[in-house]
C-alpha cells in the first residue's frame, strides 16, 4: 500500500516535527523543561496565544489580516471583569466567558462591517480599531463607581466561579483553558474543512474575485471571519483575566495581535490566504510558546527572544515560499508526465 501525504499535511508535519525537535533540545539541555509542571505551564500559556491564533486563522485563511485582537483582549478583559462582579453579585463563570465571547464577536463584527460595507482596507481598519478598543479599555479602567477618575484602580476579582476558569481541572495538573483550546481547535478544524463556510473561506483566500463570481457571498464570509476572530480573542481575554484574578489595562500593549499572526504563519497558514487551518494555528502557538518557555530556562534576555522569533517567522515564510514552488513544480511535472503517458 502506498502512503500518500497531502501537501497541507506535509507542512503540518514539518511544523510539528520542529516542535518535537525543539522540545527534545530543551529537554536535553535544561533540567526543568521536561516535567509536568512545566508542560502544564507551557500548554497553559500556549492556550491563550492559541485561542487568539485560532480566531485569526479564519481571517488569515480568507486572505485577510486582523490587527485589532490585542485591543479586543484589552477592552474585553475590563468588560468581563466588571460583568463578572456585576452589582457585587457573582455571575457564573460560564456566563462571564460567554459574555466575553459575545463582546469579542461584537467588536469583530464592527471590523467586518467596516471592511466589507464601508470598504476600508483591512490593515488600516483593524489597526485603527485595535487602537480604539485599547483606548476604550483604558477609558473603562479609569471609571470608578460610575465616574471618570484620574487613576486606574486595579480591582481584584472575588467571583470564585469566574476565577475557576483560570484554574487547573481537578487533580489533572492541566489548566481548563488548555482543554477548551484543544476542544475548540478540533471543532474549528471541522468547521474549516467540512462546512460550506470553511470551504468558502478557502475560496476567498485563494482568489476573492473568482469566489465572488462563483456565487460565494464574500462580504458575509469575510465578516464572519472577523466575528470569529474577535470572539476567540474575547474568550482568550476572559480566560487570561480569570487566571490573573484581575483585568489589566496594559494587556492592550502586549502585542497579542502580532504574536497571534506569528503563530499562524509559523504553523503554516499562508499570509496571502487560501492555505492552512486551525491545526496549523495550534502547532504555531505551541512552537512559539516552546521557544519562549525554553529561552526562559537559560534566562536569555527578552530582546534575544524577539530576535529569535523574528528570524523564525522569516524562516517559516521563506520555507513556505520555497515549499510552494517545489510542490508546484512537482505537480507540473506529474501533470506533464500524465499527459505524455496518455
Amino acid at each position: 500500500m502506498k502512503l500518500r501525504i497531502s501537501t497541507r499535511n506535509v507542512r503540518k508535519l514539518v511544523s510539528a516535527g520542529l516542535v518535537v525537535v525543539l522540545m527534545l533540545v530543551f529537554s536535553l539541555s535544561a533540567d526543568s523543561f521536561w516535567n509536568w509542571r512545566n508542560m502544564g505551564n507551557l500548554f497553559h500559556d500556549a492556550a491563550f496565544l492559541g485561542l487568539i491564533a485560532l480566531g485569526l486563522s479564519f481571517v488569515m485563511t480568507g486572505g485577510g489580516i486582523d490587527l485589532s485582537v490585542g485591543g479586543i483582549v484589552c477592552v474585553t478583559a475590563i468588560l468581563v471583569s466588571r460583568f463578572g462582579t456585576l452589582g457585587g453579585s457573582s455571575v457564573p463563570g460560564v456566563l462571564a466567558a460567554l459574555f466575553a465571547v459575545l463582546c469579542g464577536g461584537a467588536f469583530g463584527l464592527i471590523n467586518g462591517v467596516l471592511v466589507t460595507r464601508v470598504r476600508l482596507t483591512e490593515f488600516v481598519t483593524t489597526l485603527a480599531t485595535g487602537i480604539l478598543y485599547s483606548g476604550l479599555g483604558l477609558l473603562l479602567a479609569y471609571r470608578d463607581n460610575g465616574k471618570l477618575s484620574g487613576v486606574i484602580v486595579p480591582k481584584g476579582i472575588q467571583n470564585e466561579s469566574f476565577l475557576s476558569l483560570g484554574e487547573k481541572v481537578g487533580g489533572t495538573g492541566v489548566f481548563l483553558v488548555t482543554y477548551i483550546w484543544i476542544a475548540l481547535s478540533a471543532a474549528m478544524y471541522f468547521v474549516m474543512r467540512r462546512t460550506n463556510f470553511g470551504l468558502h473561506t478557502y475560496a476567498i483566500g485563494s482568489h476573492s474575485r473568482s469566489a465572488g463570481m462563483s456565487g460565494v457571498n464574500v462580504r458575509r464570509i469575510k465578516t464572519l471571519g472577523f466575528v470569529i476572530s474577535g470572539a476567540f480573542a474575547g474568550l482568550a481575554s476572559a480566560m487570561l483575566t480569570a487566571n490573573m484574578t484581575a483585568a489589566s489595562a496594559s494587556l492592550g500593549n502586549n502585542g497579542y495581535e502580532f504574536q497571534g499572526i506569528a503563530a499562524c504563519v509559523v504553523g503554516g497558514i499562508a499570509l496571502g490566504g487560501g492555505k492552512g487551518d486551525p491545526v496549523n494555528a495550534m502547532i504555531g502557538a505551541i512552537f512559539l510558546q516552546t521557544i519562549l518557555n525554553g529561552l526562559l530556562k537559560f534566562n536569555i534576555q527578552a530582546y534575544w527572544s524577539y530576535v529569535i522569533q523574528g528570524v523564525i517567522i522569516i524562516a517559516a515564510t521563506a520555507f513556505d515560499t520555497l515549499f510552494g514552488r517545489v510542490t508546484h513544480m512537482l505537480r507540473e511535472r506529474r501533470s506533464i508526465a500524465g499527459r505524455e503517458a496518455v
Binding site: N35, W36, R37, M39, G40, F43, V169, G170, G171, T172, G173, V174, Y179, I182, A183, S185, A186, A187, Y189, F190, R193, R194, V279
Partner: peptide
C-alpha cells in the same frame, strides 16, 4: 476529519491521564 478530531482528543485525554498520575505540587 473525524479521525483527526479523535486523534487530538486522544492526545488531550492522554495528557490529562498521565499528568493526573504525576507528582503534583510537591515536585516544586
Amino acid at each position: 476529519a473525524m479521525k483527526i478530531i479523535a486523534t487530538i482528543l486522544t492526545i488531550a485525554l492522554a495528557v490529562s491521564v498521565i499528568s493526573s498520575c504525576a507528582p503534583k505540587e510537591s515536585d516544586a
